[in-house]
Computed example of a mutant assay.
Amino acid sequence: MGLFSRESGAPEAAQEPAPTVVRSDEEWRARLSPAEYQVLRQAGTERPFVGEYTDTKTVGVYKCRACGAELFRSETKFESHCGWPSFYAPADAAVIERADTSLGMRRVEVLCAACHSHLGHVFEGEGYPTPTDLRYCINSICLQLQPVE
């Protein structure tokens, strides 16, 4: 259930596990393009409706572009028409959720559990017909799709 309290919809406090993939800022900058670095390591956001995976229907596994860890499976992807790829559930223990009060809003940030790179945000109770009532709104630039053959 992550950080959501079903009664209030407010984020709950959680203990973040340490990343298993640790690199210096210099190493991240060398591995990632400037745009990838800005989103993954500085919690930026790509523009809506321009991402590589916004509308893809390819069957496969979505991995973290920064470290390669499995994040989501195509079976949990759905069309939310929000401008970014949307999933209703991550792979087991693949993400960390934490409170985000930036930009004067209360949101829940989603991070890769392996390298703590920023992926996007998760929203609850928006009326989407999903089994979890959650929408993981993830920046395409954070993902690398490995198609299943």
Rank of each mutant, 00 (worst) to 15 (best):
D25K: 07
A14W: 10
Q15G: 10
A114G: 02
T56K: 03
S102L: 09
P11D: 11
A66Q: 06
C115P: 06
D133K: 04
L3K: 08
P85A: 07
V148N: 05
P90F: 00
T130G: 11
G9Q: 13
P129G: 11
S80G: 15
D25T: 14
A89P: 03
T101M: 08
A94H: 06
T76Q: 06
C64Q: 08
R23W: 14
A18S: 14
G51Y: 12
D55G: 04
Q144P: 03
G60I: 05
E75H: 02
S86V: 02
S102V: 09
E26P: 08
N139A: 06
G60L: 04
T56C: 12
S86A: 15
I138G: 08
P19E: 11
A93L: 04
A10I: 14
S102T: 15
T54Q: 14
C115G: 04
C82M: 03
T20S: 15
H116Q: 14
T56I: 08
Q38H: 15
A66V: 07
A94R: 00
V39P: 11
V59L: 08
A114D: 09
E97D: 04
A35I: 10
S5M: 09
E12F: 04
D92V: 08
E16F: 14
V122C: 11
A66G: 15
S117D: 02
A13N: 11
I141A: 01
G9S: 08
L143P: 06
A14I: 14
L143D: 08
L32A: 13
E75M: 02
Q146V: 10
R135V: 06
S117K: 05
W84P: 00
S86E: 09
G68V: 04
P48W: 07
A10G: 03
E70I: 13
Y62K: 03
C67E: 10
D133R: 09
A89R: 06
C82K: 00
A14D: 14
V110W: 01
R98Y: 07
A30P: 09
T130M: 05
Y88R: 02
